[in-house]
Structures are given as structure tokens and as C-alpha cells.
Design a protein around this nucleic acid. Structure first.
Lengths: 144, 144
DNA sequence: CTCCAATTTAGAATTATTCCAAATATTGAC
DNA sequence: GTCAATATTTGGAATAATTCTAAATTGGAG
């Protein structure tokens, strides 16, 4: 299927997968499409349900596999905002997450170019930052 | 037990519990002691094992109960650094966590007084920040 | 001291995820 | 295009961490 990868987006996906040693599959394409179409930080379960729309036979195990491959090849980020299901985010720019503890809504906010100087544990080699701001979104704040 | 709460630390604990509508119990005292004695961000399982040292009959369910009460009365913070067990931290000052993705070590680092201005989603009411820095600790960095 | 609500306890239930082994699909060589 | 080798998908079983449940126990007000 999709022998030619006609769309540039697919070719991009194929290349990203290939450079990490993964193959292009229709399931991985579908899962990545789901994530880029509605960027609301869905859980694996939610990705599964949306993916089934156009691909009714896809399985939960495959969704986990695909998400894992996409994370490994640098197209998707895992986001753990609370205990419970991990969420997935296709925005790979440096940003932080505003999280509504009441309704679960997530908002991406770019980080300011100027990051403040932070003292670091001696010899610590930083890989990445995970910054979350917890609180109430406008709607939920109004209701209280 | 502990009818008098002779130690000031215990009285402090009793008061904190009371103002949130909780009772003082020996189990809650023990769990809080475990957290303050070795501030290495243990999981519930680890707290359980350490608590059993002086209190062999304490149960896992109780450890979860106690941790929950301590979090609710503002003496302890939950820390979710990755998928998997939640960790617990008795340091209630504003700080962030440096986390070694290889060995799991956690280092507290105070945040600089000057926090950078961040654009916020309209109407969002901030409750707290969760800042984690992932990477390799000095030891693990050396091994590579 | 007595009573009642809060707490503890052991074990069952739940949730999210990972593991497994057989069936299927993809890719590179011919 | 065909074939073989290997990666991937799949459904279901297994696991890990936590939450729930209901009975026994305990703390504290009066």
C-alpha cells in the first residue's frame, strides 16, 4: 500500500522513520495524521478511537507501537501531565503546557527565547525541559 | 497512641492535618517521617518498605491514604517525572527537579527569584508550576 | 467512658501499558 | 514482478500502579 508515497508529507514521514530504522506503514501514517489533524494532546485511547474512523481494523497494540515509533524518530512528544494516560503532542518546537486540572484542556505556549539562568547539579547533562503550568482554564475558572 | 504529641514536629503535623479536616494517626506520622528523613523522592512502594521498618503492620493501602492526606494538607508534593510510579517530595518551597533518565536520581533546584514573563492563555488561573529537567546525572554521563 | 465518624486493612477491581507468539506486510535482491 | 528475510500488526494475556470496597479498629468530642 502507498507504494509511491506521493504526498510530500508522507515522504517526510517515510524519511524520518527510515533514518531511525523504521518502515513506513499505513498505520503509522494514520496515527501521525490523527495527531496532526487535531492537536489537542490526545491519549493513546483517543488516538485509537480517531484512527479507527478511517481504519476500522487497527488495533490498540498497534496504536501504542506507532506512537512509540513516532516518538523515537522525533516527530512526536510524550506528555505526562498527571498520573493516568500519557498524552501525545506533534508540536516539536520548544514549548510548555498549560493544563486545566478541572477539564483537562491543554494549551501550548512557546517559551520565551530568553531562558533564565538556572543553577545546575554539577556535571548534569541536560537533554530536555518538561514545563507544565497547572491551574484553571478561563471557562472552568468562570464556573467557580 | 501519642496522646500528647510531645514533639513540636508532631504538633505541627497534627495542626496541618486538623486544618484540612484530618486526624493525627501514627501511620500518617510514620509516613511523613519516612519522607522527611531521606529526601530522595521515593515512590509509594519505597515509602511502604521504609515505613515497615518501624511499623511492620502498616499496609500499602494505608501508605496511599497517608500520602494522599499529606498532599491534601500541603505538606507533601506529588512528582510525576515519567510514566510509572508517582514520587513524593516533602520540599514545599518552589523548586524544580533535575531527573536522570538513566538511573532515576532526582535533584531539587531552587527556582531563581526572577521568573521570566510568559504569555498565558487568556483567563488562565495559574495554580502551580511543574518544571522538570531531564538528562543525565554526572555519574551516568561519565559512563558513556 | 461511650459513641460515631474517620481511618486502617486485606484483597478485589480498575486503568494504562507492555509482552507474546502467530499472521501479515514491507523491502531489497534477483 | 517474485522471493526471502525481517519488521510490523494483531488479539489476548500479563503486568504495574493505583483505587475501590467493606469490615474491623481507632481517635477524639462530649
Amino acid at each position: 500500500m502507498n507504494r509511491m508515497n506521493t504526498h510530500s508529507a508522507d515522504r517526510e514521514l517515510t524519511e524520518r522513520l527510515a533514518t531511525s530504522g523504521f518502515r513506513f506503514t499505513s498505520q503509522r501514517q494514520r496515527v501521525y495524521d490523527v495527531l496532526t489533524q487535531k492537536r489537542d494532546h490526545p491519549t493513546a485511547e483517543e488516538v485509537f478511537m480517531r484512527a479507527k474512523g478511517e481504519m476500522p481494523d487497527i488495533s490498540m497494540a498497534t496504536v501504542y507501537n506507532c506512537l512509540d515509533a513516532l516518538v523515537q524518530c522525533g516527530l512526536v512528544r510524550k506528555v505526562q501531565l498527571e498520573r493516568g494516560a500519557t498524552r501525545f503532542c506533534p508540536n516539536m518546537e520548544e514549548h510548555c503546557h498549560y493544563f486545566c486540572d478541572t477539564c483537562g484542556a491543554v494549551f501550548d505556549v512557546m517559551l520565551p527565547a530568553e531562558t533564565p539562568v538556572m543553577p545546575q547539579p554539577k556535571g548534569f547533562k541536560v537533554d530536555h525541559y518538561d514545563i507544565a503550568v497547572h491551574g484553571l482554564c478561563a471557562e472552568c475558572a468562570k464556573k467557580k
